[in-house]
């Protein structure tokens, strides 16, 4: 018998620090598989954010740096400009990328920085214990929207892919989910494409991954997957928003 599925080499063989059912682990694995498949692990520099995935620096078997909250695209820019031959990716959550770091992501995308951004959107703040994120859905209850997110005073959840797609310079922007195997296969393809754009020197690429936070949603992993399918995907449609290789 042949091994048809095993842990990618770019993933350090230690247990994740994430809660049961959290999608971070799947996303880490997909990125690591892409690094393996392109054989770029040794040339890759990753940027871990502030949030649950601050520990991403431990899990990827390549050079890593932890950025300040929201500033990963700026730090990635500094790295890529100094080391244009390396592959640079940032891994960011929704608080990081869509709240405190909105300026950095918009401008890194607009400059067309040749970096890859993996944006994990789980509609809540995980590490700090379940507060409202910029991507928290209308009516969603969190620690800081205890009566549900009220769009009249808290605004509507931000769709980052759509927002960034209004810019001319990004090369590839896509949104994926992981709640079933077919989605996971598509997610892998999107992440691979995003890195391919960087390898080809084509410019800024971003993949938004809709993700669960069973702990702070107060749901079992199964219920969390179902909640994501039912509530998040209708508001955050899956698919490619920008692909500079295709004529629109």
């Amino acid at each position: 018998m042949n091994k048809v599925f095993s842990r990618p080499k770019s993933l350090v063989d230690i247990p994740f620090t994430y809660c049961p059912g959290c999608h971070h682990g799947i996303i880490h694995r997909l990125i690591a598989e892409v690094l393996d498949e392109f054989n770029i692990r040794e040339d890759t520099i990753g940027i871990a954010p502030v949030g649950c995935s601050v520990f991403a620096y431990l899990f990827f078997d390549c050079d890593m740096i932890c950025a300040a909250h929201g500033r990963a695209p700026a730090t990635a820019t500094g790295i890529k400009r100094a080391k244009p031959d390396n592959i640079v990716f940032s891994y960011q959550g929704d608080g990081d990328l869509a709240s405190i770091g909105t300026a950095e992501i918009i401008h890194a995308a607009n400059r067309g920085e040749k970096i890859t951004v993996i944006f994990v959107n789980n509609a809540i703040y995980g590490m700090t214990g379940g507060q409202m994120a910029p991507t928290t859905l209308e009516g969603q209850i969190t620690q800081t929207s205890p009566y549900g997110r009220d769009s009249k005073t808290m605004g509507m959840p931000i769709r980052m892919c759509e927002l960034l797609s209004t810019l001319n310079t990004p090369s590839y922007i896509s949104r994926v989910a992981l709640t079933k195997p077919s989605y996971i296969i598509k997610a892998k393809k999107a992440i691979k494409k995003a890195f391919q754009f960087q390898i080809d020197g084509k410019g800024f690429s971003l993949v938004e991954v809709l993700s669960t936070c069973p702990t702070n949603w107060g749901l079992s992993p199964q219920e969390a997957n179902e909640w994501l399918d039912k509530n998040m995907i209708p508001y955050y449609p899956l698919g490619e928003f920008k692909n500079s290789e295709e004529v629109s």
Binding site: I65, A68, T75, T77, G78, A82
Partner: peptide, 26 residues
Amino acid sequence: AAFIQAESEIAAINMVYGTAATGGRV
């Protein structure tokens, strides 16, 4: 070489952080 007029002072210093980590004089 690299020159970037950053979007903010905050972005600028975090770009410095990135380049400094690669050993570049920044």
